[in-house]
């Protein structure tokens, strides 16, 4: 009896310690976000002189000024068009390719899969300069498509979805085929509805990637009317420290909120999809 009581106490102590550590971790993770949001409601000079304190007076001046200096609606429109298209195309096209690689037998399939893996290993930077010179010659500078079409199918997404499809038993497909579906019907009515967890993950990853991209936007979007939110934020980076401080924090808060919302909507799918990731 005594030992089992001791074990129970020990287990309880361990749990308290675990929760304490996890909470410290959460505090460290959340602090910069708190810092950002609190500073976005401070009067300008206070941001520089008392960066860590609560605002002496809560104000939305920063937000008002952001809307004055930047065409926020337009920045968001551009970012949403680009990130939205990249997301939809990636989910659909990567699922198609993954389906072929996981469930259809055809000559050259293994070669195609090694091409997918090989492409995953190519550093994207290698393509930066030649892709720019290609798209420049095609007149794609200052167009949305320059940021959308080259990344409409990404090997990493194909890889992720293929892993998920391999775990779907072939019986499902055979049953649908017996019912008279062709392969497109199988894909559209059987496979796609089953794959929401992994597709949600691909959607979040694609959206994040496109929404957060700075380098490509910097290269291809020259006209201010085409700027994305990331390029808009760059304009607050100034040689004079703290010059645009209040706009800066209001701007960063505004840019972060939509991504966080999308993430909250889809986050429950994450663990499921990532549990299959690994290289054997």
């Amino acid at each position: 009896m005594k030992t089992s009581m001791g074990m129970k106490n020990q287990r309880r102590m361990a749990l308290v310690l675990i929760y304490a550590l996890l909470t410290v971790g959460a505090a460290i993770v959340l602090y910069p976000f708190l810092f950002m949001v609190i500073n976005s409601f401070k009067p300008g000079p206070e941001i520089l002189h008392n960066p860590t304190s609560l605002p002496s007076r809560w104000t939305v001046d920063g937000y008002v000024k952001v809307f004055d200096t930047l065409n926020i609606a337009n920045l968001f429109k551009n970012s949403l068009i680009i990130s939205g298209s990249v997301t939809v195309l990636n989910v659909f096209f990567s699922a198609m390719v993954a389906f072929a690689l996981a469930k259809i037998r055809f000559p050259g399939r293994n070669l195609l899969f090694s091409m997918v893996l090989g492409t995953m290993m190519i550093p994207s930077i290698l393509l930066l300069i030649p892709k720019y010179s290609l798209l420049f010659n095609w007149g794609w500078v200052n167009t949305y498509k320059a940021l959308i079409l080259p990344v409409a199918v990404q090997p990493y997404n194909i890889f992720l979805i293929r892993q998920f499809y391999q775990r779907i038993p072939d019986d499902f497909l055979d049953a649908a085929k017996v019912d008279g579906c062709n392969l497109w019907g199988v894909f559209w009515r059987v496979i796609l509805p089953m794959s929401s967890p992994v597709l949600a993950t691909v959607a979040v990853l694609s959206f994040m990637g496109a929404w957060n991209d700075l380098l490509e936007a910097l290269l291809y979007l020259r006209d201010e009317s085409m700027y994305t939110v990331q390029l808009g934020l760059l304009s607050f980076q100034s040689e004079i420290p703290g010059k645009n401080a209040e706009q800066l924090w209001a701007g960063t808060t505004l840019v972060t909120v939509p991504v966080v919302l999308v993430y909250f909507l889809l986050q429950r799918h994450f663990i499921k999809a990532f549990s299959g990731v690994g290289l054997k």
Partner: peptide
């Protein structure tokens, strides 16, 4: 079908 589905890649 295999080639059709792989076409995007």
């Amino acid at each position: 079908w295999g080639y059709f589905f792989s076409l995007p890649f």
